[in-house]
């Protein structure tokens, strides 16, 4: 009986929840400063952002 839980399928879920959250933490910190391989052109970003502002404005 692990953690007071009888069914291995349930404690596996309990442990996997914590493990997957840890995976998220480790992944994020390892890639904290990694830049994108390819940056999108500035013009494309500008155009997208302006259009997005218009969408928000409509609301």
């Amino acid at each position: 009986m692990l953690l007071g839980i009888e069914d291995p399928w349930v404690w596996l879920a309990y442990v996997l929840c914590i493990a997957s959250a840890l995976l998220c933490v480790v992944w994020g910190f390892l890639r904290w400063n990694r830049e994108d391989a390819v940056e999108e052109p500035e013009a494309e970003i500008r155009h997208w952002a302006e259009e997005e502002d218009k969408v928000e404005e409509e609301l």
């Binding site: 959250a21 933490v25 994020g28 990694r34 830049e35």
Partner: peptide
């Protein structure tokens, strides 16, 4: 996903999101 400036932001959001969901539904 579309509202962040680069994929770096998405990677950085992963730890916060993972812990948040664990604390909420867990």
């Amino acid at each position: 996903y579309m509202t962040v400036k680069s994929n770096k932001e998405l990677n950085r959001a992963v730890p916060v999101g993972g812990v948040f969901i664990l604390v909420m539904t867990g």
